[in-house]
């Protein structure tokens, strides 16, 4: 167990919540409280102690009395009120509520939960209004894909899929699916790729077709560590120096970076790591001039050519 499982304010929150529960619903068992709130029994006891140790020194008033016999002999939390007006836990703070509400809003915008009546009901309960999320791309194919993948994860079977990486190369992959991730509006499958013998991230919109196999996922996959950062396939070792206007600063969040970023004439300058130069231009061109590649020269050239090829398809000869 980590040394500091819970901080002071969270423990305070837990104390208020447990007290409220006991006052509303009667005595509670320590073990059950630990399970319910996903904390250790030790933490639950600390929270109970915070309630039972509360007293007003100036008036020598005890706020709540804990039934110590029941607590020590039977692990039962039972409070009776002393001199107090506190009869239940506080309602959720604006920030508690909004952090959950934003999270739920976000879930509602994911194809996964589009039709979830539980989610719709929950959002109605948490807030009075439950607006429909704004979505512009409706992809029945995406929903079907993610349903298949979810099924594969929950039954722990390997999948076989046609995948096109960001350089446009297409290949058949055997993947042990581990987790579905949604970042912003991009959806990724994190899985153990047998071609690379490693955990990789696959964008769902680059999966051209997908079949579930009858093979269980490999022991390597089951034991694999899934890194926190998701950069998809094809990011790597080439260092590219870029400068981004504030509106496009987020480009630094989409790549592994090298070294610190610094401010220069209102722009943020720093190095990103890319897999190959051909895959780079689209990420730069997207920001329409708000991001500039400073070095290497070949990377600048690739970006310019990409834009020129779109503007005047016939005029640009050479590499395709």
């Amino acid at each position: 167990m980590p040394k500091q499982e819970i901080d002071g304010s969270e423990l305070f929150n837990l104390s208020l919540t447990i007290l409220g529960l006991v006052l509303e619903e009667g005595d509670q068992n320590v073990k059950e409280l630990a399970e319910r709130f996903s904390f250790s029994e030790r933490v639950i006891r600390k929270a109970v102690d915070a309630v039972s140790n509360s007293e007003d020194l100036s008036k020598c008033d005890t706020h709540f009395y804990l039934n110590y016999d029941a607590y020590e002999e039977e692990d039962i939390v039972s409070f009776s009120s002393g001199n107090t007006n506190l009869a239940g836990p506080p309602s959720l703070s604006k920030r508690q509520l909004s952090s959950i509400a934003i999270g739920l809003d976000y879930l509602a915008s994911l194809p996964q939960f589009e039709t979830s009546s539980d989610l719709a009901e929950l959002r109605r309960q948490i807030r009075e209004s439950a607006p429909t999320p704004v979505t512009s791309i409706k992809s029945p194919r995406g929903a079907e894909l993610s349903e298949k993948i979810q099924h594969a994860i929950s039954t722990a079977v390997q999948i076989s899929c046609e995948y096109r990486n960001q350089s446009g190369e297409q290949s058949t992959r055997l993947i042990d699916p581990l987790r579905m991730e949604f970042i912003g509006r991009r959806q990724y499958l994190r899985g153990y790729c047998h071609k690379n013998s490693d955990v990789r991230a696959f964008r769902l919109d680059r999966i051209l077709s997908l079949e579930l196999t009858a093979n269980p996922i490999s022991p390597e996959a089951a034991a694999a560590h899934i890194p926190d950062e998701v950069f998809g396939e094809g990011h790597g070792e080439l260092e590219v120096t870029i400068a981004a206007q504030p509106e496009a600063e987020q480009i630094f969040w989409n790549f592994p970076t090298s070294g610190p970023q610094r401010g220069e004439d209102g722009r943020t300058v720093g190095k990103i790591l890319v897999g190959n130069l051909r895959a780079l231009p689209r990420h730069i061109v997207r920001y329409g001039g708000l991001v500039e590649v400073l070095a290497p020269k070949e990377a600048r050239e690739e970006v310019r050519l990409f834009a020129q090829r779109v503007l005047e398809p016939a005029a640009v000869k050479g590499v395709d």
């Binding site: 969270e10 709130f37 703070s93 952090s99």
Partner: peptide, 23 residues
């Protein structure tokens, strides 16, 4: 929804809100 947050401030609030709701 609570787990989704990478922002420290909101992750903490969402987690404490979750504790409240678990009651």
């Amino acid at each position: 929804a609570a787990k989704a947050w990478n922002n420290q401030l909101f992750a903490t609030s969402a987690k404490s809100g979750l504790t409240r709701l678990k009651a």
